[in-house]
Design a protein around this nucleic acid. Structure first.
Lengths: 192, 192
DNA sequence: CCCATGTGAGACATCTTCGTCTCATCGAAG
DNA sequence: CTTCGATGAGACGAAGATGTCTCACATGGG
């Protein structure tokens, strides 16, 4: 099948390689191309055939992560229902991609002034707009800016993914921990 | 003055170098020894005279960050007053070191299974114990584990430092953003 | 059966960074 | 002024990673 895989946007092999690369780079962001190849169960030469170089690999990971995050944004249906339920759905939808997102968030910090993948600006805008809508509806407090809430969301998702990875918190608590902290904070409120 | 500087635990020069190194590495964690030296306004050779190698430099940064964080823990007097006020004091005390801490938190993720600086375990224990006490006093909710609250604290401090660095949030809001989100979350409560 | 494609292994030159070293210079103490 | 210590600049080899290339092999289609 010389045309195998072209029925999809991304070859199955290629995606599997990206998956394992994401898993490895999430743990060790300085991993070698050779380590990435070994982790994917392929040779370094084959890795280079799929991705021109390390930059191309990282860029592909960016696109994959962005694609998954936007899919999560879609799946969360942030407009429907209450903002709280929307946030719960978003965190739930983003959980499978949390590790990859954590890597990308840290990775983006390296691009000092460089242009960031335009897609991330779009995603940021969607999250930020979600928080702003929640504020306008009176569901979110207005003394925390949407920009900060957006950053905090990314930060907590990354922290959560890493804490689980390090074994400091239980994997099953991922969604609950993040949503509850993000929504209600640590203070014991009268409502409980 | 052949003995200059030895009146202190750390030579003034040495500390200044560490400060600028921390500032640079916070922004670009992969910075070269040469870049670190340039940023400190000294030659690469001199940098190597102060710190045997990159490992030694990072270790020195770890010690500096740990020292500052423990000083912040002391200054916060976490036992006195309410837990809420203690947390406010801690975040306020930690703000000047936020960038360095952000770097170290990310850096620690690289030490896969390696032993972590024992001092960090002590610091973690103090923070974790603070949250546990708050729970026992009925000031913090008990459905979020102290371990997670500790991780979230680190994560938000790092996210805050980075968000300011990136210009996405105002520097003056650092303490308020973090404390308010950590304590009360994003949900608009009846108390307001 | 034969061929084409994709692959793994490895060789290879190149590049970057690192750590060390030398040497000329500068400044302060004596 | 002289001397000693610290510094900056630069050269140097070592080590590691990268990107390219070749070659043998396996598999699947014709």
């Amino acid at each position: 099948m010389s045309h195998m895989g072209y029925v999809r946007l991304m070859t199955l092999d290629r995606e599997q390689v990206l998956r394992s690369a994401a898993a490895l780079l999430t743990r060790k962001s300085t991993a070698t191309m050779d380590e990435v190849a070994k982790a994917a169960g392929i040779g370094r030469a084959t890795l280079h055939r799929h991705f021109a170089g390390r930059d191309a690999l990282v860029k592909a990971l960016e696109n994959l992560g962005l694609q998954e995050f936007e899919a999560a944004l879609d799946a969360a249906r942030l407009d429907e229902d209450t903002s709280e339920e929307g946030l719960r759905r978003l965190i739930a939808a983003v959980e499978p991609s949390a590790g990859l997102m954590s890597f990308l968030v840290n990775e983006n910090q390296l691009f000092e002034g460089d242009e960031v993948n335009e897609g991330w600006n779009r995603a940021d805008a969607r999250v930020s707009a979600f928080f702003r809508r929640g504020q306008e509806r009176g569901e979110f407090r207005i003394d925390l800016t949407p920009a900060w809430l957006t950053e905090a969301l990314y930060g907590l998702v990354g922290t959560g993914a890493w804490s689980i990875q390090a074994g400091r918190v239980a994997a099953q608590d991922f969604q609950y921990m993040i949503v509850e902290l993000l929504l209600g904070g640590a203070r014991r409120s009268v409502e409980q």
